[in-house]
Amino acid sequence: MISSSRVFLAKPLAGITLFVLCVTSFAGHAATDDELWVMLQKAAVAARALSYEGVFVCQTGQQAKAVQITHLFDGRNEFSRNVVLDGASREVLSQGSNLVIYNAKNEKIVIEKKRGQNMFPAMLPLNFDAIKENYTVHLSTHERVADRQAQILFLEPKDRLRYSYKFWIDDEYGLLLKSVRFNQRSEIIESIGFNRVSLLNSVALDWFTPRIDSKKNYVMADEPVILPDGKLSVTWEIKELPAGYRKVDQIVRMVPGKPYPVMHMIFSDGLASVSLFIEPTNKSGKTKVALASSGYTSFYAGVNNGYLVTAVGEVPEATVVQIANAVVIGK
C-alpha cells in the first residue's frame, strides 16, 4: 500500500530496461547494415528510457568541461539534471524537451528557458529516416569506456556536406557512452564521453532541483522575440538545397543587436543544423560577403537582391554557402 506509486512507476522502467538488454545483446558478428542501424536506434531509445547517473566530459576546440548527469525515466516522464563541474557554475534541468539553464555570470545567475532534443547521451534522434539517407554506418572494434565494454560504430557522411561521427555503445545496456565528431580532415572537433556511469535504482526525484545561492541575483535571460509572419515584407523561394537538408522550422524574430525583424529558418539533415537569416541590408553599407569558421561552426553572409542572407551551423563551409545561395529573393 505504502509504496503503491513506486511499484506503479518501476514496472514499465524494468520492462524497458529488459527490452533494451535483449535487443543489444548481439556482439560483433558479421552484422548487416540493418542490425547496425537498429543498434544506433536502440542507443537513442536507451538514452531516454534508462535511468542512470554519471560524469561525462564535453570537449570542443579549446574548452573541456566535466558534467555530472542524473537522468530518470519513470515510465511516463523523462527528467535530467546536468551540473557543469568545471569553471563557472551552470546547471541544465530538463523534463522532456523543456529545458531550463541556471547559468552563473559574474555576480548573477541567468535563467534561460529552451527547448532541447539532443543532449548527451540522447544526442541521436528517435527518427532515423534523415540520417539513413545521408550517412552510412560501419562496425568497428570493441573498446573499454568508463569501465564498460563498448562497441564502436562509425557514421560516415555520403558526401562532403556534413561531418562524420564515431560512437561507443555499451554492450550490455545499449547506452551511448561516447561520441566523437570529425571534420573532413579527420580531426576531432567535438568529443563527449562518460568517465563513469551507472544505472539508477530509485525513482525518487529529490535531486531534481537547482542549487540556489541566496547571495546571488537571479535574472531571466532575454527570450527570442517572435513576430507574426507578416512583419517582414519580403518574398523568397528556397531552391536547390544541399542534398539531405530539409527545413524544420521558420519564424520571424528579433535578433539582439538588430533593430529590424529577421526571418530565421532552420535546416537539418537529421544530425546537424543550419540557421538561415534573411533581413534588409544595413544602410551604412558595411555589409560584405563573408565566410568564416570556428571549431565546427561555419558562417556565410552575402547580399542577395538588396537583402542580407546569412547562414550559420555546425557543418562544413560548403554547406552554409550552398544553403545561403539557395535563397531567391522576389519582389
Binding site: C58, V67, E190, I192, H264, S273, V274, S275
Partner: peptide, 17 residues
Amino acid sequence: EYLMAHQSLAPSTSSYY
C-alpha cells in the same frame, strides 16, 4: 548575434554544457 540566434533555436549538443 547570429551564433546566439542559431543556438537559441537549434542548439548543438555541446552548447548545453
